[in-house]
């Protein structure tokens, strides 16, 4: 069984995000970057599949040199090798353009299963896996919380409103991993040292077979016009120097008339 994981590097969940001066992106300096947490489930699941039934695991990432550290973390956890899609032409890719780049790798690698995170925790689009399945002409199962591979098929439990849905799909397929699927392991120190020697192959525009107009800003069908910060929260109101009963009356009145929450 060959399992390929599409991984994205995102800012740390605890990073404080500041919008860049031009409003077109975020300030990337001084941010800690991590493997998107949902992608960790995908990495862990891939390793477990290999541990259970042998085969090969590959991690694929689109991004600048910065993403190599997160790829290395996946290798340290136990993934066999990596493909790093990096080319100046890829900059500014939207989800569709990114999926085209990933699909070019998948067509060459020919895995049995492609695992992605349910969504990246930065832009929360959850689009790339669906595009990917469409480009490849493969089935897609979204938000998998339990996975069982049976020969040439996979049985997946999906989280849905109020319960779970059990589906079966043929392979090859694209699946996105949800919380609860597994408990991702830590990259151990020996794992980290081993990862140093594992291969990370570079994959540039020339290898993708795509045109320059398919990817990057040129290929993006959705253009980001700008980013806005969350509005500042208005200051709270403090009531003092009155009887408690009067304060309560005031608060209830404002909750009803101004905040309209009761």
């Amino acid at each position: 069984m060959k399992v390929l994981v599409c991984m994205k590097q995102t800012p740390d969940t605890e990073a404080s995000i500041k919008i860049a001066a031009d409003g077109k992106g975020i300030e990337e300096q001084n941010i800690k970057w991590i493997m998107s947490p949902y992608d960790e489930y995908a990495v862990e699941e891939a390793i477990r599949i290999k541990e259970k039934q042998t085969g090969e695991t590959v991690v694929v990432t689109v991004g600048t040199d910065r993403v190599v550290e997160s790829m290395r973390t996946a290798l340290a956890m136990g993934i066999d090798r990596g493909v790093h899609c990096v080319d100046p032409a890829f900059l500014g890719s939207d989800a569709l353009a990114t999926a085209k780049i990933l699909a070019s790798v998948i067509k060459t690698e020919n895995p049995d299963v492609v695992l992605c995170g349910r969504q990246a925790i930065d832009l929360d689009q959850a689009q790339a896996p669906a595009y990917l399945a469409e480009i490849l002409g493969w089935p897609q199962v979204y938000s998998v919380a339990k996975l069982e591979l049976k020969g040439n098929a996979a049985v997946c439990n999906r989280r849905i409103e109020g319960g779970e849905e059990i589906v079966e799909t043929s392979l090859p397929c694209v699946m996105t991993c949800d919380k609860g699927l597994n408990e991702p392991r830590y990259a151990s120190l020996p794992g980290i040292m081993k990862a140093k020697k594992k291969e990370i192959k570079k994959w540039a525009l020339a290898q993708t077979g795509l045109a320059e107009t398919d990817v990057g800003t040129a290929g993006a069908k959705v253009k980001t016009l700008g980013y806005l910060p969350l509005p500042d929260r208005p200051p709270g109101k403090v009531f003092k120097e009155m009887e408690t009963a009067d304060m309560v009356k005031q608060v209830v009145k404002l909750l009803r008339e101004e905040a309209k929450v009761i």
Partner: peptide, 13 residues
């Protein structure tokens, strides 16, 4: 890079 990842893993743990 390895030292960076090692520190991160220890932090995470």
């Amino acid at each position: 890079e390895e030292q960076r990842i090692a520190r991160e893993m220890s932090r995470k743990f």
